[in-house]
Amino acid sequence: MKKFIDHCCEKCTHTKDNPCKDFVKCCIEGPVCHESSSCSARRKAIIDEVALNDQFIIC
């Protein structure tokens, strides 16, 4: 997972043609539809790459 649009695992199905209502929330707080620490770590890795400081994330 390099970008938020990439799928964290096969459970995520969001694409522009098959959209998920929770997509935006899922980017930061996800995964929303299932529980998986490795999936949330994948999202965290994207954030850690660019977050400048503790106040950077707004949700």
Binding site: F4, F23, V24, K25, C27, V50, I58
Partner: peptide, 21 residues
């Protein structure tokens, strides 16, 4: 000045597209 304006991911991290949702 805080985000890369060419990255949608960073905009989402700053709370972007939540209001639209």
């Amino acid at each position: 000045g805080i985000i890369d304006p060419e990255s949608i991911d960073e905009y989402i991290m700053r709370g972007g597209y939540r209001a639209f949702t």
